[in-house]
Amino acid sequence: MTPTDLVLVAVAGGLGAAARFLLDTLVARHNRSSTPLGTVVVNGTACFLLGLLTGWGVTHHGSGDVVAVLGVGFLGGYSTFSTASVEAARLLLAGRGAVALVHALGMLVLCLAAAVAGIALGGA
């Protein structure tokens, strides 16, 4: 990875993280249930877009730099695993075990489906 690539990845990661914060804030403002949904929306869209990018990268040779900056940088900074884990942990600690289970597994299944759809569309 060249220094230029790394700088681009850093800038893209910063933009991705800011986009996650703004979208999460927006979702939280409109979410009437007590279950956090912002991270689900963020991670679902991130997985769809990374799938799209991965599918596109497979069929377009020499696109490694674009895939790295957007995939590792922007989408990596945009999506988050740690917040998802802490949200499920807090639901568990609040005695909402069933909600925690649906939250954690539901996010995995939804994101996987989004990634599969993205890869299929991107590679087509």
């Binding site: 993280a17 991670n43 990634a115 599969v116």
Partner: peptide
């Protein structure tokens, strides 16, 4: 909380890479 938690740790961890790795393994 925002700089270190949402920013550093949120950006450090990744759900998209993780899920696409799951898909690539299965595929």
């Amino acid at each position: 909380r925002l700089g270190c938690g949402t920013g550093v740790l949120g950006g450090f961890t990744t759900y998209s890479t993780f899920v696409v790795e799951v898909e690539r393994l299965a595929d």
